[in-house]
């Protein structure tokens, strides 16, 4: 077995093990979208009607509409959690162990990224199980057809998180990510409302939502749940993934933060 494959498996296994050991993180990842589903969606159900838009072939309840958006939310938070964990690992030193492996740094970072995506897929699987038990109607094969979309969307968001991790100097600065990245990405997307609703609200809002790569990630998931491919979404998410991954690998420096921290502790 190739050393690269062994290392890849080891890195993914470590991410999964860390996730399994952190029960609070697992519960947190599930509770957030479930609150939106059980509380927010139930409240909006009466107020917000959804016209028949692809991929849906009939009128659907609001809960059904926001399922892809909440799956996207799980992956978005997981991507940001991954970048938080990279900043934490860099400050705590465990990132050094990864990067002193003799394998190329780009490969190690991408493997780490994929490890995070695998964790997000596990979270989504648990969420879909609850969605089914809650009675939301999805095709029986949806968990399988959505898998490629989850991998691609997870990679895009994980790579975006890694770009953020490469620009953040210290753990304390991470709170800004929530305000300036996660919330705008989520609310300025088609996760909670269809784009035509945004267009009704104003063209600027519609443009912002249309340019948001997370919108396309959600649409990719939405169509994939019904065994379809949204070509535009696929193209945008693929392009954004390649761009973010290239920026992340190029920009990540294990020394970032050392300038302000290590010398004080260093000999």
């Amino acid at each position: 077995m190739s050393g690269w494959w062994i290392a890849f498996q080891g890195i993914v296994a470590r991410e999964v093990l860390r996730f399994v050991h952190q029960r609070e993180r697992f519960l947190g990842a599930l509770v957030r979208p479930l609150v939106w589903l059980f509380v927010f969606a139930a409240g909006f159900r009466a107020a917000l009607g959804i016209a028949i838009i692809p991929p849906y072939e009939t009128y659907i309840p609001y809960e059904t509409y926001i399922v892809p958006g909440l799956i996207g939310m799980i992956q978005l938070f997981n991507g940001m959690q991954g970048s938080l964990s990279m900043v934490y690992d860099r400050e705590m030193g465990s990132m050094r162990i990864l990067l002193t492996s003799p394998l190329p740094r780009g490969f190690l970072l991408l493997a780490r990224l994929l490890g995070g995506v695998v964790v997000s897929v596990l979270q989504v699987a648990a969420f879909l199980l609850i969605v089914r038990l809650y009675g939301i109607d999805l095709p029986a094969w949806a968990p399988l057809t959505v898998l490629p979309a989850l991998l691609l969307n997870g990679l895009m968001l994980g790579a975006l998180g890694m770009v953020l991790a490469s620009t953040i100097r210290q753990l304390e600065n991470f709170a800004g990510v929530m305000n300036f990245v996660v919330f705008p990405l989520f609310f300025l997307s088609s996760a909670l409302y269809p784009l035509y609703r945004m267009e009704e609200a104003g063209p600027l809002l519609w443009w912002l939502c249309s340019l948001n790569p997370f919108t396309h990630g959600v649409e990719l998931i939405r169509f994939a749940l019904y065994g379809q491919v949204d070509g535009l979404a696929l193209a945008v998410v693929t392009g954004a993934t390649l761009l973010f991954a290239a920026l992340a690998v190029r920009g990540y420096s294990p020394a970032r933060g050392m300038g302000s921290r290590a010398p004080s502790a260093a000999g």
Binding site: I6, G10, I11, L98
Partner: peptide, 27 residues
């Protein structure tokens, strides 16, 4: 290398930490 800062993963067991490192070296 043994860095000055501890670099073990506190939530993993001893053997899980060591297996992870071995994998990073293709073992």
């Amino acid at each position: 290398v043994v860095f000055q800062q501890p670099t073990l993963d506190l939530d993993l067991t001893v053997v899980q930490n060591l297996r992870y490192f071995a994998a990073l070296h293709g073992i």
